[in-house]
């Protein structure tokens, strides 16, 4: 079920990036399985009532992957799938970064390094109110270069926010190349653990493994980080693991090739 859905989500991403403005395709495709699993298998949401008080919260801290989120929200029923066709065009609610005008978007993101702190606020309010809403924050691995991420990481740990789950879309690329040295990818698990987080690593394109690890709640009062290994541009061979896949405006021909690759 989720695999077919993720495939539909990827097709939507390609279609949006074939519009006049293009889109952040690479990071949306790397996150597509994570987003699909969250919204279809893990999170408690009511698409017809986005502000349902018992909902789980989601923040797309890597806000440039907006097209991925829009595709999943539309498929999940937060707004009509047909609305995706207006992406980035005048009059649409769907801009290059998500805003609260979009049903299902909790808080706007786009400037990197804000989402985890916002998530700490949502999780802290729930903790003190005795509510069990979970909070999920999706970050990019390049985004971890922002210092505010680590301010948030520290505070989540000392506040014991065990309903907070951060997911790192570890696709290994940023605009100018590899994130490996800039983010210190080889030390990532150690760094999060050192900040007092419960750390899991998972194949970010394996829906059942993702569903298992994201459904789990740590029992020891720690916030949880899931380091999801992904491929930037996943599903479109001519973009996979390539710098040029970061931001793409598909020509009609490239769109056809991309859709054919997705099957």
């Amino acid at each position: 079920m989720t695999t077919a859905l993720a495939s539909r989500v990827r097709r939507h991403i390609v279609e949006m990036a074939a519009g006049p403005e293009g889109a952040h395709v690479g990071g949306a495709l790397s996150a597509a399985d994570i987003l699909t699993v969250l919204y279809f298998d893990v999170m408690r949401v009511r698409p017809e009532q986005p502000d349902w008080p018992d909902r789980d919260y989601f923040l797309l801290s890597k806000g440039h992957a907006a097209v991925g989120l829009y595709a999943v929200l539309a498929e999940r029923g937060f707004f009509p799938v047909g609305e995706l066709g207006g992406y980035a065009q005048a009059g649409s609610r769907l801009g290059g970064h998500p805003t609260r005008a979009v049903p299902g978007v909790e808080l706007p993101t786009g400037s990197l390094g804000h989402g985890l702190s916002l998530g700490v606020g949502l999780a802290l309010a729930a903790q003190r109110d005795g509510r069990d809403n979970r909070t999920f924050v999706l970050l990019g691995d390049g985004e971890l270069q922002e210092g505010s991420v680590w301010e948030a990481a520290g505070s989540a740990a000392f506040l014991g926010l065990d309903t907070l789950t951060a997911i790192v879309d570890r696709n290994g690329l940023q605009i100018s190349g590899s994130t490996a040295r800039r983010t210190g990818l080889d030390l990532l698990a150690t760094r999060w653990a050192g900040f007092g987080w419960d750390v899991s690593e998972v194949d970010g394109h394996d829906p059942s493994a993702l569903a298992d690890v994201l459904a789990e709640r740590p029992a020891d009062g720690k916030p949880r980080v899931v380091l999801a290994d992904t491929v930037k541009g996943k599903g479109i061979p001519f973009l996979e693991n390539r710098k040029k896949g970061h931001y793409v405006t598909f020509t009609p021909q490239a769109r056809q090739r991309a859709l054919a690759a997705l099957g």
Partner: peptide, 20 residues
Amino acid sequence: VDLGIAEANMMSVAAGLAAS
């Protein structure tokens, strides 16, 4: 809540609290 010497984080955490 004392968020420590981390003002940027504090502002966003407060936003999350206010949104709640």
